[in-house]
Every structure is written in structure tokens, then in C-alpha cells.
Computed example of a mutant assay.
Amino acid sequence: MDLENAKVQMRKGILEFCILHIISRGEVYASDMLEELTSAKIMVVEGTLYPLLTRLKNSGLLDYKWVESTSGPPRKYYVLTDDGKTFLDQLKETWIELQSSVNQITKENENKE
């Protein structure tokens, strides 16, 4: 089994949740999202972010607006839609349940050692 592949798959599994959570804080520029995801070691490949943002937009979970920039072309800032907020709330509930379940299992394993 390839350990690095397993780590990548775990990160991919929570990437959508993390992106929606970042956007939930307010309007956010894609490069700022990328920077935060990279520093948190959730994502390191830029080519993954843009297709995912497009898919989330096409699903009605987020929207964007163009903002003029004084230092170049206009920037696209992302925001959650009402459906996106509801979806994120549901993902948060699932995350809490999953986190609790994993902690329970890993704690049981620690007690057996």
C-alpha cells in the first residue's frame, strides 16, 4: 500500500468541506484560498482548486463577483449561496460525527496497546 497515496486520498475527501468553510468567512479570492489550503497541508496542487470551484458554482453552492483591481485585471471573489450555507452546515454535522467516530476507534486502539 502506498502511504503517500493514502494521505492524498484522505485530504481530497475533506477538500470540498475546507473550501466551503473558507468561503463561509466572507468574500475570498481563489489565490487566498489556495494559500490557506497549502499552508494547512490540505492541498498543494493549484490545478485541483479551479475545477472544484467551478463544480461547486455549477451545483449552486457558491457564486462569485468580479472586483476591479488597481494592479491588474479584475479579480473573482467567491461567496456562499444560501444553498451553500445549508450544505456546509450539513457537512459540519457529518464532520463532527465522523471525527467523534474516528477518535473513538483510535482511542480504543490506543487503550489496547
Rank of each mutant, 00 (worst) to 15 (best):
L3D: 07
N103D: 14
E93M: 12
L80K: 06
L91I: 00
Q90Y: 01
S71F: 11
D63V: 13
E36P: 02
I105F: 08
Q9K: 07
I19P: 03
T54L: 13
T94M: 15
E35M: 14
N58L: 13
K65G: 00
L62K: 04
L62H: 00
F17V: 00
F87G: 02
E16Q: 07
I19C: 07
S31G: 12
K76E: 08
L52C: 05
E93D: 10
N5C: 03
C18V: 03
L53I: 05
D63G: 12
K7Y: 08
K76N: 04
F87S: 04
K107V: 11
E36C: 03
R75T: 06
L53A: 03
L52T: 08
E110P: 07
R75L: 13
L62V: 00
Y29C: 08
R25W: 04
N103K: 12
K107E: 15
M43C: 12
E108H: 13
A6T: 08
Y50H: 05
K112D: 12
S101Y: 05
S100M: 03
E27G: 04
N5S: 09
T86N: 12
E93R: 13
L62S: 01
T81H: 06
I96D: 12
L3A: 09
G60K: 02
L37M: 09
L52H: 07
M43E: 06
S24T: 03
Q99P: 01
N109V: 15
G60H: 00
I23H: 02
S24D: 06
R75V: 05
C18A: 11
I105M: 11
S39E: 13
L52K: 12
N109M: 15
K65E: 04
I105S: 11
T81A: 05
E110T: 14
L3E: 07
D2M: 11
L20V: 05
N109W: 11
E113L: 14
E35T: 15
I42K: 11
E35A: 15
I42T: 03
L3N: 11
Y50G: 01
S71A: 12
V102I: 14
L56H: 01
E4F: 10
R75K: 15
M10G: 04
S31W: 09
V28K: 04
E97F: 15
D82V: 06
V8R: 13
N58C: 00
L53F: 03
I22G: 06
K76Y: 06
H21V: 06
V102F: 11
I14Y: 03
S24N: 09
P51V: 01
Q9A: 07
E97Q: 15
L91V: 05
G72V: 06
E36S: 02
D83G: 05
C18D: 07
V45L: 11
Y78I: 01
L80W: 03
T106M: 13
M33Q: 06
M1T: 08
L88R: 02
N111E: 15
G13Q: 05
